[in-house]
Amino acid sequence: MTQPRQGTEVLPSANPAIIGVNGLSKTYQSGSGPIEALADISIEVARGEIVAMLGPSGCGKSTLLEILAGLIPPTSGEVTIDGQNPRPRAEVGLMFQQALLFPWRTVLANVMLPAELSQQSARDWEARANELLGMVGLEGWAEKYHWELSGGMQQRVALARVLLLDPEILLLDEPFGALDEMTRESLDLEMMRIASDADKTVVLVTHNVYEAALMCDRIFVFTPRPGRIAGVVEIDEPRPRSLAFSTTSEFSERVAEVRTLLSGENIDE
């Protein structure tokens, strides 16, 4: 059950793993003793794949994302990103649940932030920033400030910002989790289209089963505290998909599989 429907497109040899996690554990030291956040995580993600890390709050999935982004070190185990140790770099883009737009910057200046921080000439990037704003449907909003934007629009700006330096890998920490259902769905589809078109590798952290099943090629289901991988569910449906996919029996079967894994019935397999 942990690897259902093996063999169709799990890591074909032509697509070697761009993200490799082997026996990773993370333990935090707290006042009341050590807290084990992640235990014995092993994951491989192929180039161009969209995978979800799905689990309840506190299962350490966001911690895993921070480790992949190189923001915190693992306690033990091995992590490689494109053959290297994880560290913050232009090839890896991290996106959060909050848009985190700086209120003193215009929309355009917010999108340009990554280029500015990597000591690149801002002028070279202005055209690309404007192009990206057009791509996320915010043409004509470049000179506005974030308080003039709705929550969904703010998250679109954050999406344009993370895409600016054209990272190969997108690490998304519940990127649309704070938005209403309809806005989230439309942004999910857009994100999937963008990632599919540009052949990006995406790791999506979420606790929304439908979001994971709609967007992803594979879903890693996590157990609560400490986070372990309860199983992997593969969604065998070509991308980009439309919302119509969510009405198919394939979709509901996969959702049911994920739910079974989440309920913990198969953990002791």
Partner: peptide, 19 residues
């Protein structure tokens, strides 16, 4: 699942920018 059976959701944000 029932609330997700609609084939097409509006592509625009449901919340407009404050005027």
């Amino acid at each position: 699942m029932s609330e997700r059976t609609a084939t097409k959701e509006p592509a625009t944000d449901s919340r407009a920018a404050p005027t």
